[in-house]
């Protein structure tokens, strides 16, 4: 009793500041990459798919063998590498966001239904979730893409249809808790419809948890796309995917190492920034609820 919990919480200013910082830094980097991706046609005069055999494998600006205009050099077909990295960011972000949207829809729906109804419904959905969890993600994705053929749409769909498990698990647990809250009982006693109860009463209260899962899954989806493309089963040439660029660059890694370090660096930066943002969001949402 005595004092509201919020007031007893530790002072730990440095931690609050760090929380704030991780959200700011992570979110800032993600935003920067997103803006660069959107503005790619403005930022660079080159076409990401247009070969220029005369200027093959030119080095970035800090090395000797460089060509003015190609700041980050060119690849084995003479395509401007900066342009390809910028357009690659588009591919990563679009696939990531669409796949997360698909998986969130599936996972949240299953989780809400399982958590709200419980009993047999919950048992059945629980079994579906367990089944999905027991399947190796990359192997299934590989098999499906190998059969269906790689394309932007297929890869997005396959990833989206595979990574809903965490959404379902988290939503189900959060719904089970919210379901027993008196405000849900009040809505039931008011004669509210089931969709209203699920969407308006329960969902807003479990959103913080869902948003955190979404950031993790966004990074996950981007890495999965890169992996599939690297194996040649994802986005197909000449589209500039970071994974595909890694794969193409690996043949030249001894003489022109920037061809793999640059896309690798981009991937690491983006996924780390997303995860950082997720951590920051989680803490910010948690303290905001108090």
């Amino acid at each position: 009793m005595s004092v509201p919990a919020a007031q007893v919480r530790r002072p730990a200013r440095w931690r609050a500041a760090l929380t704030h910082k991780s959200l700011v830094i992570g979110g800032g980097v993600v935003l920067l990459i997103a803006i660069a991706a959107i503005l790619a046609p403005v930022l660079t005069p080159f076409d990401p798919a247009q070969p220029d055999i005369a200027n093959r494998l030119k080095s970035p600006f800090w090395m000797a063998d460089t060509v003015p205009g190609h700041y980050l050099g060119t690849d084995q077909l003479g395509r401007d590498y900066l342009t390809r990295l910028l357009y690659g960011a588009r591919i990563s972000l679009v696939i990531g966001l669409v796949a997360v949207a698909i998986s969130a829809t599936i996972g949240i729906t299953l989780g809400l239904v399982a958590g709200y109804f419980g009993g047999k419904v919950d048992a059945v959905i629980g079994f579906v979730i367990t089944t999905r969890l027991s399947m190796p993600l990359v192997l299934i994705a590989l098999a499906v893409v190998a059969i269906a053929g790689g394309s932007l749409t297929t890869v997005t769909l396959v990833i989206g249809l595979l990574i809903w498990d965490q959404f379902a698990v988290v939503t189900r647990t959060a719904t089970q808790q919210a379901r027993s809250a008196d405000y849900v009982r009040a809505a039931e006693a008011m004669g509210c419809s089931l969709p209203h109860i699920l969407a308006r009463e329960i969902l807003p209260n479990i959103m913080p948890a869902v948003i955190v899962v979404a950031t993790v899954e966004l990074a996950n989806a981007i890495l999965l796309e890169a992996a599939l493309s690297f194996l040649g089963l994802g986005v197909q040439a000449p589209l500039p995917s970071w994974g595909l660029m890694l794969s193409e660059g690996k043949n030249f890694m001894f003489f022109d190492p920037w061809l793999i370090t640059l896309p690798g660096l981009c991937l690491v930066t983006l996924t780390m920034a997303i995860n950082l943002m997720g951590d920051g969001l989680r803490d910010a949402l948690r303290s905001g609820r108090r």
Binding site: D182, Y183, G191, N205
Partner: peptide, 25 residues
């Protein structure tokens, strides 16, 4: 009677005023 008809006749007030109001609204 339908659920909605029942709801118009009888309404609850719960014990814990911290749990009975949706914090999101």
């Amino acid at each position: 009677l339908s659920r909605r008809a029942v709801a118009r006749r009888v309404q609850p007030v719960f014990q814990d005023p911290f749990g009975s109001l949706n914090p999101s609204h």
